[in-house]
């Protein structure tokens, strides 16, 4: 069973052979296996199974597999809240901090992939990286950074600012 291979297929149809243990970090994959096992108890457990991932592109899936593979050798330390630092390097091990130093689009794709594939530690890490992007930025800076248009009415702006007065 340890050497069993799972084929993960990306949105584009590209297939990645992944050791079962690595693939099983995804609860989606794990659930797929248990569903199959329920349906066919006689099935040969060494048979290579294929799991389609229609929401995950090949470059993102490659990164996800990289994460899950590394996790087998060095488990990511759980992220403690409240955070004691605002820099990734002081919150997770160096490899994981470097892993999420990617462009913003890739980061959001990784968040979505971790969510879809249900990989909790990857979701924690990528959401932490997003939160660090947000930290300390003004509303204007956030709009510029994430290309968001200001669409609030003056009344809504005033309401939100009034509610937030205690924090500023």
């Amino acid at each position: 069973m340890e050497d069993a291979i799972v084929k993960l297929t990306s949105k584009e149809g590209e297939t990645f052979d992944v050791p079962r243990k690595v693939a099983m970090m995804s609860k989606l994959v794990k659930d797929t296996f248990s569903d199959d096992d329920d349906e066919d108890d006689e099935e040969d457990e060494t048979e290579v199974k294929e799991v389609p991932l229609p929401n995950v592109t090949a470059p993102v899936l490659k990164k996800v597999i990289e994460y899950c593979t590394h996790y087998q050798d060095e488990e990511m330390t759980p992220i403690q809240t409240p955070l004691k630092s605002g820099t990734l390097d002081e919150l997770v091990q160096a490899w994981y901090a470097n892993f999420v130093k990617v462009d913003r689009n890739m980061l959001f794709d990784l968040v979505a992939a971790a969510n879809f594939m249900d990989i909790k530690p990857l979701l924690d890490l990528t959401c932490l990286a997003v939160s660090i992007l947000i930290k300390g930025k003004s509303a204007q800076e956030l709009r510029q950074m994430f290309n968001i248009s200001a669409e609030l009415s003056p009344e809504e702006q005033a309401e939100a600012q009034r509610e937030n007065a205690v924090a500023e």
């Binding site: 809240t81 997003v130 660090i132 300390g136 200001a150 600012q161 937030n164």
Partner: peptide
């Protein structure tokens, strides 16, 4: 997930960014 790591000050500011976040207050 994301909110759990964002400091309180930044959380409060979120609602002033855009309508989606305003509606998520």
């Amino acid at each position: 997930s994301i909110f759990t790591y964002v400091p309180v000050t930044d959380l409060g500011r979120f609602g002033t960014v855009c309508r989606k976040f305003h509606n998520m207050r």
